[in-house]
């Protein structure tokens, strides 16, 4: 029995070492309530021609996703974002995509092909700076109902973690 336990432990360590050295998890930073800054107010026109004012999102939990159509890890996340938008819309959840694409045509093609169910605006340097600098994609921010940035996710998103955070903010009424 002892040998069996040792063998299982050895296998576990081997697998853990392998997984640990072959996976780049995204960076996930929770902000304490005192550090949580107000999300910058944006007024822009989205790809469908609708005026987007993020101030009107107050009272909702909002995910701001910086991405680009050429960025593979970004585009791989879009179907999951679409699913989250569908699942939590009724509870007051809203996603806003901010594209950092240089080429608008590729972005529009992607947007249409994936039938994205949330607004996407075209980003610029000012918006990136307002969010503290976007020095890599994908990068997302989760904003509470009070308009404060609660979480930052840099790199490939851990969706289990993100969904947990979304659900917690929706329930907290924060």
């Amino acid at each position: 029995m002892k040998k069996a336990a040792i063998a299982v432990a050895v296998v576990g360590v081997i697998i853990a070492l392998y997984v640990g050295t072959h996976r780049h998890a995204g960076d996930h930073k929770a902000l304490s309530s005192s550090a949580a800054a107000m999300a910058p107010a944006l007024t822009m026109v989205d790809l469908s021609g609708n005026k987007i004012e993020t101030a009107s999102y107050r009272g909702k939990v909002v995910l701001i996703n910086f991405w680009a159509a050429w960025c593979t890890p970004c585009t791989e996340e879009i179907p999951q974002f679409i699913a989250f938008q569908d699942k939590y819309r009724g509870q007051g959840f809203q996603i806003l995509g901010i594209s950092m694409d240089d080429q608008e045509n590729a972005l529009r093609q992607f947007y249409a092909k994936y039938q994205m169910n949330y607004p996407v605006v075209i980003g610029n340097q000012r918006i990136a700076q307002d969010y503290g600098g976007i020095l890599g994609l994908p990068t997302s921010f989760l904003v509470g109902r009070d308009g404060r940035i609660q979480q930052k996710y840099a790199g490939v998103t851990d969706f289990a973690r993100l969904e947990h955070d979304i659900a917690a903010l929706l329930q907290a009424g924060k």
């Binding site: 680009a68 950092m100 240089d102 080429q103 340097q125 990136a128 700076q129 020095l135």
Partner: peptide
């Protein structure tokens, strides 16, 4: 890489070529 990243921050002295996937 892409223009937006270079404009925000880049290695001093680095020359901009642009996203080589283009």
């Amino acid at each position: 890489g892409p223009r937006f990243l270079y404009a925000q921050a880049h290695i001093p002295g680095a020359e901009f070529i642009g996203a080589a996937s283009d």
